[in-house]
């Protein structure tokens, strides 16, 4: 197990570096002068010598390689730089916004997990029957609906009396308010649920075909116990895999959801940062997102071992 973990950690480093490099090259290639973002209105008014002075101060006149190495060096000390526009360190911006995004992701995960896994199991109990057809059909439709549209339609029918009922606030964030969190979580979760539902159904059906079911039945176990203790536990592995890959979707989807619902998370900071070409903020949020995503995958790998002793004992 520890060797397995060690190998996974070693793989983690080159992948993280790869992502960092790709992102750095992309932001380096950004066509507009970053100083335009730094100086705003003053960019045109200030004499060129002053502009060049600031450029030198920020290290933006150095060749690509030394800028890159400098960034990596600072990153290793957890220094993501300062925003060009806001008077804040990038790490502080992330620190302030991250909990909000986490809340949203957790809400989405909860909605998606309960509805997705639940409906998947329900569909798997009698494959080919009407409930199965209905649920798999719904899952396909759910996966085809764009997040932003789902958000708008739900806003249309659930936040105003004109076409529906005003059950939830249209948008916004209030600390500790479940009503504000409900709609964004639902939007984020429903899309997640459709993918999860299909995987859980397939995994449960696959688990059903195994010989251990026969043994369990011969032992005299009831169906419920077989499903809970044997099938579900075996089906958890593929479900977890998809769930961990879905974290990337949750991160990306939260950008859209936060924008629509005016939710003060990372995505809500990313879009204006891109508009204003605030490179340090863009880089910081993206690298943070990618590393977070990889860390979640790593944790899931460890979870495999806990759930399934066969994986733990291998090698």
């Amino acid at each position: 197990m520890s060797r397995y973990l060690g190998r996974r950690l070693l793989q983690f480093i080159p992948t993280a570096f790869g992502i960092l490099t790709v992102l750095f090259i992309l932001t380096y290639l950004m066509p507009s002068d970053p100083l335009r973002a730094v100086l705003g209105e003053q960019y045109r008014r200030l004499p060129p010598e002053v502009v060049e002075g600031i450029r030198e101060e920020l290290g933006l006149n150095q060749p690509f390689l030394s800028q890159y190495l400098g960034y990596v060096g600072r990153l290793l000390r957890f220094d993501l730089g300062r925003s060009y526009i806001l008077e804040q360190k990038v790490i502080d911006i992330i620190g302030y916004r991250l909990p909000h995004t986490f809340q949203l992701m957790l809400g989405g995960l909860l909605v998606g997990g309960v509805i997705g896994i639940g409906s998947g199991i329900a569909a798997s109990l009698r494959p080919g029957r009407w409930l199965d057809h209905l649920l798999t059909g719904l899952a396909l439709v759910g996966a085809s609906i764009p997040v932003f549209w789902l958000a708008l339609v739900l806003q249309l029918v659930l936040t105003q009396d004109k076409y529906g009922a005003a059950l939830f606030p249209v948008a916004g964030y209030e600390s500790g308010s479940i009503r504000h969190l409900a709609l964004p979580s639902l939007v984020l979760g429903l899309n997640l649920a459709s993918g999860l539902s299909r995987v859980s159904r397939a995994a449960m059906i696959e688990a059903r075909s195994r010989d251990y079911n026969l043994t369990a039945r011969m032992k005299g176990l009831r169906s419920r116990a077989i499903i809970q203790r044997h099938q579900l536990r075996n089906a958890l592995i593929p479900i977890l895999t998809v769930l961990s890959l879905d974290m990337g979707y949750l991160l990306g989807g939260s950008v859209v959801t936060e924008t629509i619902f005016n939710w003060p998370g990372l995505g809500r900071a990313l879009i204006p940062a891109i508009d204003r070409r605030d490179t340090p903020v863009i880089m910081g949020i993206l690298i943070f997102g990618a590393v977070l995503f990889m860390l979640i995958n790593l944790v899931v790998d460890v979870l495999y071992g806990i759930i399934d002793p066969r994986i733990r004992l291998e090698k």
Binding site: L23, P31, L251
Partner: peptide
């Protein structure tokens, strides 16, 4: 496969947003 893993690990939507804002 390592390269594939990198592209797998980048959240797609975030990549696309950056891609089009940087490169038009």
């Amino acid at each position: 496969m390592r390269v594939a893993e990198v592209f797998f690990a980048i959240p797609a939507l975030m990549f696309l947003i950056v891609w089009v804002t940087i490169l038009e």
